[in-house]
Design a protein around this nucleic acid. Structure first.
Lengths: 237, 237
DNA sequence: CGAACCCTTGACAGAAATCAACTAAGGTGG
DNA sequence: CCACCTTAGTTGATTTCTGTCAAGGGTTCG
């Protein structure tokens, strides 16, 4: 594990407030590793062995039932995932696969549980991180239940624009089929929705998105801090 | 606040492991109160002032956007809600209203945050509770994205049967329109779905549900521990 | 160059929401 | 005690939305 990785991890909200001794102990058992694109890192139902931290690349969290599957989230640097399963020492609810070549930090779940029993600051950080994850999923569920697919797409584009610093032109950075699955629709349906969204000020060509009329977009999907707001660092989609 | 309430709260997973002194301190600032049916306890967007514990009755957590709204969960004794907002000291993502006359314990969020900074056991309990809430919402989102409405209804009935100790005959205990909203469908659609579910071994008359063919039901919605499993005590729907 | 794979488009089928009407049950007030 | 009102639930007709199936264009990569 590279020294500058260590420094970066140390600066994560999850790790920055803990005692140095405990951080060092935690990193003792941890290791960074690079994985190729398209690798299944974990499968839902597996026992939770490691907390994962995305240092480079992108990881898709997805879930399956019967023969269906869907994208639940995309995690980019520097974000963590499957914290909850590690803490409760129960099977993962989601699978994870790399979307591109990625470097991850793996922290043994047992060490994690041991350390936050003796480091109050780390416990507080863990709580805060977990609360953020929880709220992110609640937002996602609200979006699914309160908006139709066209509104979800528009809201997604609006949020991406905000993440890009309010830019009126930006690239998606994720395959459309993933976005579709994340938004709870088929690729075909997303494709059709995007075509009709020029009515409300969004034009998409390939990976390039242009917001041609922000006022109309804002009128169509009034952004709601209780749905679209930030909450989980590194959680892109 | 009644003495036996205190004992019951003390036995909650969230509070049972903390030091007695800290528990007493927490309860010092807390108070139990009864509320009539249909009262809006908290509104989404409000600042998080109190952790709520349902001692008696039932509370609906719901969310709204524009002119729409939906049920996100129903909490019954003894369950807690809006823990995450209290911890992060941020606005509630959901509103809460009593479904019937209910008694709640209200614990000031500031006390909560103070105590889990100095009581490691309480911090651990908080993490576990929160992780449970997180996983419950992930399950809910998975159900919404991976199953169609008929499957969600069937799975819901199956789970209620299991919660009733595996009984093949039980009462819903919640208005159907709430169940519909929770499952992400209209009341009309739920009504129609219920009628067609006799094909897979479910018959419903009023509030009474009878599972006439468990084998066929299990074949129709293979219960999945990663979707239907337990996780959040007190979280009924 | 060929083979995947992603994206798009069209035609169609199925699912779900909407609108409207009607029933039944519970509560209120005369 | 009963007429009245409100509300949950149901049912039917209809529209809208969404998924499915099939085909073709474009790109990437071996």
């Amino acid at each position: 594990m590279r020294p500058d990785d260590l420094a970066e991890v140390r600066h994560l909200p999850l790790f920055r407030d803990m005692l140095k001794a405990n951080f060092d102990a935690l990193m003792q058992g941890a290791y960074a590793q690079a994985f190729p694109e398209g690798l299944e890192l974990i499968r839902q139902g597996d026992p939770a062995d490691f907390l994962h931290v995305v240092l480079e690349g992108a990881v898709e969290l997805h879930a399956g039932w019967q023969d269906r599957s869907c994208t639940m989230a995309v995690v980019k640097p520097v974000g963590t995932f499957i914290l909850a399963a590690c803490i409760k020492d129960v099977p993962y609810l989601m699978s994870a696969r790399t979307l591109e070549r990625s470097r991850l930090l793996l922290v043994p779940a047992s060490d994690l549980r041991a350390v936050f029993r003796r480091d109050a600051e780390f416990a507080v950080s863990t709580i805060t991180e977990l609360a953020g994850c929880y709220r992110a999923v609640v937002r996602h569920a609200k979006s699914l239940k309160l908006r139709n697919s066209r509104e979800r797409v528009a809201a997604y584009m609006l949020k991406q624009s905000q993440l890009a610093g309010g830019a009126l032109r930006f690239t998606l950075g994720i395959e459309k089929r993933l976005i579709a699955s994340y938004l709870g629709m088929t690729p075909e349906n997303l494709s059709r929705a995007l075509k009709t969204l020029d009515d409300v000020g969004i034009e998409v060509h390939g990976q390039m998105v242009t917001i041609t009329d922000m006022d109309r977009l804002l009128a169509f999907v009034p952004p709601d801090a209780l749905i679209d707001g930030p909450d989980a660092p590194g959680l892109v989609a």
